[in-house]
C-alpha cells in the first residue's frame, strides 16, 4: 500500500544542501498499522509530507496506493486521509458541520454517501454536541475528532496521521486510540502514524519504524524493539537509549559524504 525506494529530501539552508530524509526504503502492506518514531527533527514529518504529496522528494521515489504522490497528487488525495495533530485541516471560523460540507464538495462525495458516513462517524466519535460550533471554539480533543472525521468522509484506503494524540488529555487520547484500532480492524484501513507518545505505539502498532537523522534506523515489531536494548524495563527507556546512542558528534552532513554518517542501529 505504501512503498518508498531510497526516498530522500534535501533542504537548502544558507546555501548548503542539508538532507532531512535520506535513502529511506520501506514497504507497508494493505491493512497494516504502522507507527513511526524518532526524535524531534529526525525527518518523520518530512517523510509524511512526501508520502502525501505536499513535498516533492529530491531523491528516490514513493508509491502510495499505487500512485506517485507528486505527479498524481490529486488522484492520491481521493484515496488517502491525512490528519495533522499540530494544526487543523478544518476552517477556523466555520461551524464543524460547514467544514465537513466543504470537504464533501472538495472530494465530490455523493450527498447520500456523505450523510450516511457522517452519521456513522458522528455516532462513533460523539460529534453531535458540537457540530454547530465554530472550529476555533472547540477543545483540542473535539477538534481532533473533527479532523479525523474530515479525513475519513471520502472513505480513504490509507490514513496518515502526524502526531494525532499530541496535547490530548488521557480520556481524549484513549478515545482516539480505540477509534483508530477499530477503523483498522473493521474496515481494514491501512494506518501510518507518527508519534512521540509510546502509549500509541504499544497499544496500536504491530510494527514500528524508527527514523533517526533522516534514515530508517529500525523496522520491526514492538517486541523486537524492546529486545534491542536488554535490561530496560519500560519502552520509554528503550527508545530514549536508542535516541541517545545514535546522536552524532557533528551536525548532519551532506549526502555526498557517506563515510561521515552517524552510526545507526539496525534490526
Amino acid at each position: 500500500m505504501i512503498e518508498t525506494i531510497s526516498l530522500g529530501r534535501d533542504f537548502k539552508v544558507r546555501g548548503t544542501l542539508v538532507p532531512a530524509v535520506r535513502d529511506l526504503s520501506f514497504r507497508v502492506g494493505a491493512g497494516e498499522f504502522v507507527g513511526c518514531l524518532g526524535p524531534n527533527g529526525a525527518g518523520k514529518s518530512t517523510t509524511i509530507k512526501m508520502l502525501t504529496g505536499i513535498l516533492t522528494p529530491t531523491h528516490g521515489r514513493a508509491l502510495v496506493a499505487g500512485l506517485d504522490p507528486t505527479r498524481q497528487r490529486k488522484a492520491l488525495a481521493r484515496r488517502i486521509g491525512v490528519v495533522f495533530g499540530q494544526r487543523t485541516t478544518l476552517w477556523w471560523d466555520l461551524p464543524l458541520r460547514d467544514s465537513f460540507e466543504l470537504v464533501r464538495l472538495l472530494y465530490k462525495v455523493d450527498r447520500n454517501r456523505f450523510r450516511q458516513r457522517l452519521a456513522e462517524l458522528t455516532e462513533v466519535l460523539e460529534l453531535a454536541p458540537f457540530l454547530r460550533t465554530p472550529v476555533r471554539q472547540l477543545s483540542l480533543g473535539q477538534r481532533m475528532r473533527g479532523d479525523i472525521t474530515a479525513a475519513l468522509l471520502h472513505d480513504p484506503e490509507v490514513l496518515v496521521l502526524d502526531e494525532p494524540t499530541i496535547g490530548l488529555d488521557v480520556v481524549a487520547k484513549a478515545e482516539v486510540r480505540s477509534f483508530l484500532a477499530r477503523l483498522n480492524a473493521e474496515r481494514g484501513t491501512t494506518v501510518l502514524l507518527t508519534t512521540h507518545d509510546l502509549g500509541d505505539i504499544e497499544r496500536l502498532c504491530r510494527r514500528v519504524l524508527l527514523i533517526d537523522h533522516g534514515r530508517l534506523a529500525f523496522d520491526g515489531s514492538v517486541a523486537e524493539l524492546r529486545a534491542l536494548v536488554p535490561g530496560q524495563e519500560s519502552i520509554e527507556d528503550v527508545v530514549a537509549h536508542l535516541y541517545l546512542s545514535s546522536t552524532p558528534a557533528a551536525p548532519r552532513t551532506p549526502r555526498r559524504t557517506p563515510d561521515a554518517d552517524p552510526p545507526t542501529v539496525t534490526a
Binding site: 502525501t52 504529496g53 488525495a77 495533522f84 499540530q86 494544526r87 485541516t89 472538495l106 472530494y107 465530490k108
Partner: peptide, 10 residues
C-alpha cells in the same frame, strides 16, 4: 500551514 492542507485535497 494551511497551504499543506490544500495540497492534500483533490
Amino acid at each position: 500551514g494551511t497551504f499543506d492542507t490544500m495540497l492534500i485535497r483533490p
